[in-house]
Design a protein around this nucleic acid. Structure first.
Lengths: 206, 206
DNA sequence: GTACATTGATTAACGCCGTTATTCGCCCCA
DNA sequence: TGGGGCGAATAACGGCGTTAATCAATGTAC
């Protein structure tokens, strides 16, 4: 019971923090706010996390898993490399726009605001790029993709998708641009740019 | 003299804030820090700016101009639309990486951290996208670019370049990826994706 | 059964932050 | 000589992350 309640409190802290991230954003996520929400004093959180950064790192861990789950599912839903790659692109953007609480702390927060993500955990985070690089590699071997350095191609895709997610969710894109058009263009763009058959007219609509 | 010193103090505040942004980042940019640097009390800043947001907005104004200057110069340095577009892409990335103090407040800072940039100033900021859209339009009319919606194409380019800048400068890109390779790939990628002649082998190295 | 140690939790405090209200000192002009 | 206006400073408010000290309850050893 004591042990279970300990874990329960830790979970309550994480859940409350995640919920506060969605409602008020990282800018107003504070130890005191979390504490008020769960009915404890702020210092009690330090019995379970050694700092605010530590708490956020735990949430990043969760986010990495959620994204990996989503990418894996997309990857498994199609058989051809080009379809797998495009599905993962769409899954990535969907994750970024639908789980902004995770996306912000994973990929947006400036390193100045938060201690560096522990090195040993980078491995897990990198798998989310490698699963895309794998699709590129498969496509190359089966001849539908041109010969490229898979990790470079994956990173190029990542930067494209990351740009779409961040500029859309920070509402910096002109409202006269339909978000879905931009997302469609970006995803097809990523795939078609490394395809041998390349149908240029499908890259950008209109 | 009184008038000049007033403007002088305002400039000193802006310059000090900009310098602090480069050295310690927005996370540690505070009214009290700026004040200490210029030898005034923190509240004196409020005689020239009505809030911290207002001060940062003034800096954003400057950044928009600096970027526009850089894009215009790049645009004027080449005659063909494809070269103009690529030059502007490289200028954009260079601006993002070399002037992180401007880039952070212009394009990275979450809207939660800062009041929205005043609507009437968006026009000026949008010109930095329109100058790219113009190159796309020119290329279409002269036949080297495929038929696309110019503003959508410009936004797609923007998201690609923004992704490169932010992921590189937040050091989230694996160190085994050479930054210049990624930048090269992104810039060529943007241009070649809308070119009719398209030489796929030049899009990605190796 | 009593003294001690452990442990979950709290309060108080430190030094930051943006911002506001108030006050001070000084120059100009009637 | 006396205000009026104005640049600037101090004090203060409520918020922040974090640490130190304390408290109360629970076991545990003798």
């Amino acid at each position: 019971m004591s042990e279970e309640e300990e874990k329960g409190l830790r979970r309550a802290i994480l859940d409350t923090a995640r919920q506060l991230l969605t409602t008020v954003g990282y800018a107003r996520l504070s130890m005191r706010n979390i504490a008020k929400e769960i009915g404890y004093s702020a210092t009690s959180i330090y019995l379970h996390f050694e700092s605010k950064d530590d708490l956020v790192h735990a949430l990043i861990d969760e986010g990495v898993d959620v994204l990996h789950e989503s990418l894996s599912r997309a990857n498994a839903s199609f058989s051809t490399p080009e379809h797998r790659l495009e599905a993962m692109c769409r899954a990535y953007v969907a994750f970024g726009l639908e789980r902004p609480e995770y996306y912000e702390i994973m990929y947006v927060l400036h390193p100045e605001y938060i201690k560096r993500y522990p090195v040993e955990k980078y491995r897990k985070a990198r798998r989310n790029l490698e699963i895309m690089a794998d699709a590129v590699r498969d496509g190359m071997e089966s001849g539908v993709f041109r010969s490229v350095e898979p990790m470079l191609a994956a990173n190029l895709a990542w930067t494209q998708l990351h740009g779409v997610v961040t500029l859309l969710s920070s509402e910096r894109v002109d409202k006269r641009i339909a978000p879905d058009d931009l997302i469609d263009a970006a995803c097809r763009h990523v795939v078609s740019s490394i395809c041998t058959w390349k149908d240029p007219s499908s890259v950008l609509p209109s």
